[in-house]
Write a protein that binds this DNA or RNA. Structure first.
Lengths: 343, 343
DNA sequence: TTTTAGCACTCTCTGATGCCGACTGCTAAT
DNA sequence: ATTAGCAGTCGGCATCAGAGAGTGCTAAAA
């Protein structure tokens, strides 16, 4: 008998989560029966709810109101109560069509990807710019701007490209620059910055200056990761009823604009594959304590990768969010593979 | 006598605007005297306010409350009542130090610039990516990725750089690509896309494909302008008391995220130099009817330029906003000049 | 003609009050 | 272990009254 009772309790919890996610109001014992014919009376449900409350799955905003799920409930729900589903085929179609062809650089596509995810789940979505696990030198180009200044274009293994200008103490010619570029491209292509440092080249002062700048950029690129990211759907997230209180809304807005929380997500991401779900208090960062994150890596393992994820109130449709993140990371990975070739 | 009275009325209007900007509450006749010793009684001020109301400068939220400025008042204020001031020297220092050195591409600096402005005025600020009035070809670079695919790097006259991959029907070698690059660089450097089209080169099929892609990119770059822009300080703007009502807040948030309004600003900007102020209903776009914009071009006239501006509720410190926009556009212009050299 | 004093009037804001409806917890019966 | 019934709790809403702020108007003064 206890087995059947356990099952019913799971069911009740599942219904509570679903209902609360949909309606954002405490769910009452009778409301549970209204839509789902379990063969029992409201009183039984109330007993079950009392049990769930005692065990810390749900809470009541005030005495004798309906129950709202706690972190523990969401966690249990994600782990045991919700079977993973694929994104509906039509949604998949729409996204694929929207992303269409590459060509104008990642910027546009990543932004669109974030926007699509956001709309899919009605919350904010973020996509970080892809980054090499360890960048490798791919190509260098030097263009004279004027006598004492050159434009340096550096392409790295993640197909990211950096350009910057550099001024010199002595005059330089385009010939000199070409020579330097040829040399660097011959010697450095395919190397990481550490391998480059190990290789002692004979260089002119001008070349030395260029090479150290290149190394610095590569180091910087290895660090910088969340600096550039695409966050879309803020309006959707902040339209959720949890943000009716003005200060909470502004607090979250501030958090989002600062983007410091992203660092946190990325750190977490370092461990393991697949879709990660962080619910409320599970976040180390206090400012995220009443939000949830669903995110995943994308990219090519051990080569390039970024993070794609969803952020919203704890009351979110985790099933949908997980599907969306999972699918989108797949699409983006595929896209990266196509762009980078077999490399 | 009427002359003195006019002057006093101007003064009253000025005080009303200042007070309302600071406090965001209707300003009462006695409140005006509280802080500013005009040599008259409250009743006189009331008469003046009645006059101002009749003339459409101010309105009352309800019978017998204080007055709030209308669009006409702000316009008059900006035009006649507020002498332009420079940004405080210390602020100038801080911004210059913050922007520091160029080097990592515009992205970072433009974002910082927007952030600084936003903080300066307590509203949202936007900086668009600089764009050539008409882009010129500057440099092309071709790198083989594999047999049927190449990475194309195109540098344009605004120092903007585009890279994209292209696949070919026939195998290509790096030698072929180098040859093509040399040819294009020799023939096309310094030309606009129209001049390029006029010049009929003899090209191989591969080169033809590359060249048409380049032209397309240049055309695209000429169009695309507001696509990439940096919007900072949303939290500040939405923290203003005019957005206590939830729907207005979400409405504006939606507007900001879509960024379609930027197109509007840019269109307006086309005419004339200097700092532009658009107040409330002066906006053609209905969605901006209760917001104000303060913006300006920056860049090098007839070469490259972008837009820098502030957006906020009509109740904003126009004097400060104008100073900030003016100063920032100066700083960015200077920076562009330095980066592009004399060109 | 312009300014001032005085006063009645209008409107917002706040807190108190009371009632309705929703839902539970408890007890006792099944 | 489940159910029925009922008393009790609490949020939400509408109503109301009083205080405070500030004006418009009128008539007198400058």
């Amino acid at each position: 008998m206890t087995k059947a009772a356990d099952k019913r309790r799971d069911n009740v919890l599942k219904i509570i989560v679903n209902e609360y996610v949909a309606k954002a109001t405490p769910v009452a014992s009778e409301a549970i029966l209204r839509h789902h014919r379990l063969g029992v009376s409201p009183a039984t449900i109330r007993n079950d709810m009392a049990y769930l409350e005692e065990e810390g799955y749900i809470a009541r905003p005030y005495t004798s109101s309906g129950g709202v799920p706690l972190d523990k409930a969401y966690r249990y729900y994600v782990e045991n109560l919700s079977e993973n589903v694929d994104l509906p085929a039509e949604e998949q179609q729409r996204i694929r069509r929207m992303l269409g062809d590459v060509g104008e650089g990642y910027d546009r596509i990543l932004r669109l990807a974030a926007g699509a995810m956001a709309n899919l789940v009605g919350n904010a979505a973020v996509v970080t710019y892809p980054k090499s696990s360890e960048n490798r030198f791919k190509h260098l180009e030097l263009v004279e701007i004027h006598q004492y200044m050159a434009l340096i274009v550096l392409i790295l293994s993640n197909a990211v490209l950096r350009r910057f200008t550099m001024s010199f103490d002595e005059p330089v010619t385009q010939e000199q620059l070409d020579e330097a570029a040829v040399k660097f491209n011959r010697e450095y292509t395919g190397l990481t910055k550490r391998q480059m440092a190990r290789k002692k080249l004979e260089v002119t002062p001008v070349e030395k200056k260029i090479s150290s700048a290149v190394t610095e950029i590569m180091a910087h690129e290895d660090e910088l990761e969340y600096e550039s990211s695409y966050l879309e759907g803020l309006r959707l997230m902040l339209g959720q009823p949890e943000f009716t209180q003005r200060d909470r809304m502004l607090g979250v807005l501030e958090l989002m604009e600062a983007k410091a929380w992203l660092r946190h997500v990325i750190d977490w991401q370092l461990t393991g594959e697949g879709v990660k779900v962080i619910i409320g208090e599970e976040n180390h960062e206090a400012s995220l304590h009443d939000l949830s994150l669903v995110f995943s890596k994308y990219g090519i393992p051990d080569q390039v990768g970024g993070t794609v994820g969803i952020i919203g109130p704890k009351r979110m449709d985790y099933r949908r969010a997980i599907s969306a993140v999972c699918y989108m990371s797949g699409v983006l990975s595929e896209l990266m593979t196509r762009v980078l070739g077999e490399d």
